[in-house]
């Protein structure tokens, strides 16, 4: 199918374009294009987790139950303060080791644990394999955790901004506390939260370029591989260091994504503001 497209384009543009078009549609480049899905999945799933953790964090932060409030504040303040790169490589590894620890407690004999004190995990049954896809899920959760802390802060602020009168009126109509929280506070806070959340989304989107740190063959890793100088004809087109060209392509991708995001958030903002009297 790709050959057909290349041939059609060559027919349109002339023979001079053939080598170039064939180069940018070879298997290595197709793998690069396919790897954009990891970035998009990480962004969307990461955002999904971030909103969930954000809501939970914000709810915890203003809970009437003090320990829950401490947990909320702890999460928001600590996780926001840790560099995202660090958390991004820390969380999946720590999670894996924790799971393996429980596996080893359940599956290894005491003898094996005693014999293999120096090596981890103590027995093969406790070994937990992680494929690239598993790492992708863990990466999404880490993104969710890090940016969820930012989102929690934004959502907390937005919840406070919901006019007290609205909530008191709801209470006066006999809604339970839970109903007031979910149907009035959460429903109305989006108007105040969305500008802040759009900021968090932009940060999260940029952080998706870190996926290669977890050995996921993402767009950055492929750009690296494709742009690296090649002097061996067997390994493909011989070319000097072309990494800047591929990184430039990534710049453009992220700029386009940012532009699309801006439009989506504007539409969301309009939708959230329906039927609400807001200052702006």
């Amino acid at each position: 199918m790709i050959d057909t497209i290349v041939n059609a384009l060559v027919g349109l543009l002339g023979e001079d374009w053939r080598a170039g078009l064939e180069y940018i549609t070879n298997g290595k480049h197709m793998a690069w294009y396919a790897s954009f899905k990891f970035t998009l999945i990480a962004a969307v799933a990461g955002a999904f987790f971030a909103v969930i953790f954000g809501l939970l964090g914000a709810a915890a932060k203003q809970s009437k139950f003090a320990p829950l409030r401490w947990i909320g504040s702890f999460y928001v303040n600590i996780v926001r303060g840790v560099p995202d790169v660090l958390f991004f490589i820390f969380f999946p590894l720590a999670f894996e080791q924790t799971v393996e620890y429980f596996f080893s407690r359940a599956r290894c004999t005491a003898e094996e644990i005693a014999n293999n004190a120096g090596s981890w995990p103590p027995c093969d049954a406790a070994q937990w394999y992680l494929s690239g896809n598993d790492y992708l899920i863990l990466a999404c959760v880490s993104l969710g955790l890090v940016y969820g802390a930012f989102a929690a802060n934004v959502i907390h602020g937005a919840m406070i901004s919901v006019p007290k009168g609205q909530l008191e009126a709801a209470q006066a109509y006999g809604f339970t506390e839970k109903q007031v929280f979910w149907r009035f506070k959460v429903r109305q806070m989006w108007v105040y939260a969305l500008p802040g959340l759009s900021n968090v989304w932009m940060l999260l989107l940029k952080a998706t370029s870190l996926l290669s740190l977890l050995q996921i063959a993402d767009i950055v890793l492929w750009a690296d591989r494709l742009g690296a100088p090649n002097y061996l004809a067997r390994a493909g087109l011989v070319h000097p260091d072309w990494r800047w060209k591929y990184y430039l392509a990534l710049f453009i991708f992220y700029i386009i994504m940012a532009m699309i995001s801006e439009r989506v958030f504007r539409a969301l903002q309009n939708r959230a503001s329906r039927g609400m009297v807001t200052v702006n």
């Binding site: 298997g27 290595k28 197709m30 690069w32 591989r225 690296a228 061996l232 067997r234 390994a235 493909g236």
Partner: peptide, 17 residues
């Protein structure tokens, strides 16, 4: 490693060779 021609590298098809 997949980046150490001619020992191990990614060929033009994107496969290890």
């Amino acid at each position: 490693e997949g980046a150490y021609a001619p020992w191990n590298f990614m060929d033009d098809k994107g496969k290890l060779a």
